[in-house]
């Protein structure tokens, strides 16, 4: 069978589908000071998965606010700097108007994912951390 670390090189999704892959990628991103990008990506996926059943609404609102405050609000943060201004205003509007939608972070997540696919992921595959692991 193909060893996991070779699968990681196939696509970003293959890497993010493996616990050890995530761990190593996060170690690399931490070195580059951009681990928040990965955390944000997973936070968006997790947010989408919170069920919309009654009683969860308050939790969703709290979570949306937490994600907004931690990653989007600070314009100097690594995540905030990679997200388009229009996308940020959209999220801000949703939070301010308490309009909590499961897809409200989708566009921002896509932008961060594109950034990782074009930038940090290829760098990771060439990094000492990955090469030493293999």
């Amino acid at each position: 069978p193909t060893p996991p670390y070779l699968k990681w090189a196939e696509s970003l999704h293959s890497l993010l589908d493996d616990q050890d892959g995530i761990h190593l990628f996060r170690t690399f991103l931490k070195q580059e000071d951009c681990a928040d990008m990965l955390d944000f990506w997973f936070a968006c996926s997790g947010f989408r998965k919170v069920e919309a059943s009654d009683g969860k609404e308050e939790k969703k609102l709290k979570l949306a606010k937490a994600i907004y405050r931690k990653y989007i609000l600070d314009n100097n943060g690594i995540v905030s700097r990679q997200i388009k201004p229009a996308t940020k205003s959209f999220i801000k509007d949703c939070v301010m108007k308490l309009h909590i939608d499961p897809a409200m972070f989708d566009q921002a997540q896509t932008e961060i994912q594109t950034m990782m696919e074009e930038n940090t992921y290829p760098l990771f595959l060439k990094s000492d951390i990955y090469l030493e692991y293999t």
Partner: peptide
Amino acid sequence: IDSEDDLLQECISSAMPKKK
């Protein structure tokens, strides 16, 4: 603020793949 961080951590973990 602590509970907000916990909520965020829980959310991040829930999206990660489970051990195979």
